[in-house]
Design a protein around this nucleic acid. Structure first.
Length: 428
RNA sequence: GGAGAGAUGGCAGAGUGGUCGAAUGCACCGGUCUUGAAAACCGGCAUGGGUUUGUAGCCCAUCUAGGGUUCAAAUCCCUAUCUCUCCGCCA
């Protein structure tokens, strides 16, 4: 959620900045509603104030033992007038709030303008794609030959976009997650967390999955009037970031750096037909998430650091990658700036997204009322929140399988994973 | 799952219809005292919103949440959520 002041006093400028990311703000409608809100709220509060005053004087008169009847007569139909205004006001506020909740974050000044992913800007490249002197296979073929990836049986049990892993491939999937967690906790200063995989509606509103993107989620029961029940997390960002919801953190505790390894569940309603083959786009996948809660002045530096933490995973695995900064039109709903890390996939002969690291600034914090209190400050202020994948485990597995394949279809186990796989050097 | 008890400010904890946004204690901040610190003493100390040139003043809201009763609700009624105790079940 944007600062409501932007929508009140800087409406035009805000609309312009939102337009760069392809979001059209209905300025005219909003300013009319806002004007109405102002007068209605003042009228309502005035009525309220006079009712309070009369009620108070009744209490005082009674205490003195005076006759209350003449004062009672003053009340008249104040109550019903007040109820009507209150009703009208709350409906208006609800409308305004619904608009505010569906407006995306403002892009940071440093974000390149652009309409879609073709205008993202590469900021760096690491490693050199390996030259293979044989025909490379993709992970689906390699996995099936090794008996480690079973797409067919998963379809029988659940449906498409689910996977059964077995044997050393399953073990490598687990090893990757362990390796990432250990790296972030021992070298990057994150605290490991174990979190609920089912979350309530408030949490999803807090991080911005709701109200707009409910169809991307799996819900445990059908939508009802009261809500939509608990939902499976699409990312550990939701539980991790919501830890700070409705809290005031002492400045001395900042920055808060949390990591968790969880399965993630995405229905990806809009993406049928994309990446139908293989592990790239699954309804269920594991991810190690990084979340930081920081002071506003630290958040841009924290984004660089967090992105570097995610990149370190690929460096240690010796997987070539490039990092791009997303242009205004390609950023997620709540982000003010996002770096995507893309890993080299030889079978596709291209770089594919494996991590997305974003600075949400105070966008989520405002929705969540996640604040911190500085010693010198009188009032608590909103935190800045950041999150990033460090990394998506399934896609990392794909990258390892494809980049470390040998001509005979076996997979060399990356050096850093061997301690997690009983010293195993090769699969197959 | 059954039965009972609860939910009040950062924390603990009073308050059962009328100047209650809320006693008191702790914590915290400022001051006096002290070489310094502690103790003691004095003072301050919730959040959100509106109005406003205003971090002044005034006004509104908030005692888990949502409804209701009333001129008036922390206080009475209903519903939801959560917590605790006991029983059952379970990894």
């Amino acid at each position: 959620m944007l600062d409501p002041k932007f929508l009140r006093t800087e409406l035009e400028a805000t609309a312009e900045r939102l337009a760069t990311r392809g979001f059209i703000l209905d300025v005219e409608r909003l300013s009319k509603l806002e004007e109405k809100r102002k007068s209605l709220q003042m009228a309502t509060e005035e009525l309220q104030a006079s009712r309070n005053a009369i009620s108070k004087s009744i209490g005082q008169a009674k205490a003195k033992g005076e006759d209350v009847a003449p004062i009672m007569a003053q009340v008249g139909d104040l109550g019903s007038q007040l109820d009507a205004k209150k009703q009208e006001l709350s409906e208006l506020l609800e409308t305004l709030n619904a608009i505010a909740m569906s407006v995306p974050n403002l892009p940071d000044e440093s974000v390149p303008a652009g309409a879609d992913e073709s205008e993202n800007v590469e900021v760096r490249r690491w490693g050199t794609p390996k030259e293979f002197n044989f025909e490379v296979k993709d992970h689906v073929e390699l996995g099936e030959v090794l008996g480690g990836l079973d797409f067919k049986t998963a379809v029988k049990i659940t449906g498409s976009r689910f996977i059964i892993m077995k044997g050393q491939i399953a073990r490598m999937n687990r090893a990757l997650a362990q390796f990432m967690l250990d790296l972030h906790t021992t070298e990057h200063g994150y605290t490991e967390a174990y979190v609920p995989l089912l979350v309530n509606e408030e949490s999803l509103l807090g991080t911005g999955q709701l109200p707009k993107f409910g169809e991307d989620l799996f819900h445990t029961k059908p939508a009802t009037e009261e809500g939509q029940g608990l939902s499976l997390i699409p990312t550990a960002e939701v539980p991790l970031t919501n830890i700070a919801r409705d809290t005031i953190i002492d400045e001395a505790e900042l920055p808060v750096k949390l990591t968790a390894h969880t399965p993630c569940f995405r229905s990806e309603a809009g993406s049928y037909g994309r990446d139908t083959r293989g592990l790239i786009r699954q309804h269920q996948f594991d991810k190690v998430e990084l979340v930081q809660l920081v002071k506003p002045e630290d958040s841009m530096a924290a984004l660089d650091a967090l992105t570097a933490h995610a990149e370190t995973v690929l460096q240690k695995l010796e997987l070539p990658y490039r990092t791009v900064v997303l242009c205004t039109g390609d950023m997620g709903f709540g982000a003010s700036k996002t770096f995507d890390i893309e890993v080299w996939l030889p079978a596709q002969n291209t770089y594919r997204e494996i991590s997305s690291c974003s600075n949400m600034q105070d966008f989520q914090a405002r929705r969540m009322q996640a604040r911190y209190k500085a010693k010198s400050a009188k009032k608590p202020a909103l935190l800045h929140t950041l999150n990033g994948s460090g990394l998506a485990v399934g896609r990392t597995l794909v990258a390892v399988i494809e980049n470390y394949q040998n001509e005979d279809g076996s997979i060399t186990v990356p050096e850093v994973l061997r301690p997690y796989m009983g010293g195993l050097e090769k699969i197959g």
